Amino acid sequence: MQPRRIARELALLSLSQLPSSPEKLETQQLSNMVLAAVRTLTTEVQDTLTTAAAELQRASDRLLSSETRASDLRTSRSMVDESIQLTQSAINRIGTALELPELIQLANQPEFDVRTYALQVVRAVNIHRPEIDEQLNAALVDWQVSRLARIDRDLLRIAVAEILYLGVPDRVAINEAVELAKRYSGDDGHRFINGVLRRISEQTQAAYPKS
């Protein structure tokens, strides 16, 4: 995995856990950021497993209270399938948490500092959040940034920050966000992320056409 991609992933996972103050942000060591990322993943695992357990309980309750009608059996099977998918998602998150420190160690080569770029991304999101959210709200159709799932909201903010403030080409920022969405968002999350960011890219190019 490319070092810059790992830095972007680290920024995504640690963004909600790191201080927003630029001064405090600068004092964060790589180990602090990894810990923040693992905490984010741990919280997601706990929440996902809780949801999966509740879905299994609902399926069990429906079976126990039903008269074994075909519709009840289909509904219960759907609930069990959903809980299995949620559990698999939680297992994948655990795997990511275990892999992250090793990936960062491998990527932290002398020519590229993972910590530095991850902090640049987090700093850009924090400093320019009002402008970033304004861009996102303009691109969202009948929706608002504040109503998005946290992972989708942070993915979009990071991609826009890279495009507008870190000089990353639109195509690269969009592709990287889509790849991260495939790892961390819902089933159709990557398509949603792709659509929103492409609208932002079109709006930006229309507002600031290249000479």
Rank of each mutant, 00 (worst) to 15 (best):
R62H: 08
L15W: 06
D113A: 10
E162F: 01
A139D: 06
V160G: 00
P19D: 02
I91G: 06
D81S: 11
D187V: 13
G167F: 00
R62I: 15
R4T: 05
D187T: 11
I174G: 05
R150L: 14
E55W: 08
L98F: 07
D47C: 14
D142Q: 14
T50C: 11
W143N: 11
R58K: 15
R171T: 10
A118L: 09
R199D: 00
N137T: 13
Q85K: 13
D72C: 14
N108C: 07
A70Y: 04
T43N: 11
F192N: 09
P110T: 10
L25Q: 09
A173S: 07
G186V: 05
E202C: 06
D133L: 03
Q28E: 14
A53G: 10
I151Q: 02
R183D: 11
M1L: 06
V178A: 09
R4I: 05
T42E: 12
L35V: 11
E9G: 00
R153K: 05
R4V: 03
V168M: 12
I174L: 04
R58H: 13
T27Q: 08
D61K: 11
L35P: 04
T50W: 09
R39E: 15
Q88F: 03
L166D: 08
T204Y: 12
R5C: 01
P209C: 02
R39C: 11
R171L: 05
M33G: 03
R191V: 08
V141F: 02
Q203P: 02
V121M: 03
R62A: 14
S65M: 12
L63R: 04
G189T: 01
S31T: 15
N32R: 13
D133W: 01
Q46M: 14
A177C: 10
N92R: 10
R93K: 15
D61A: 14
L180W: 03
I104Y: 12
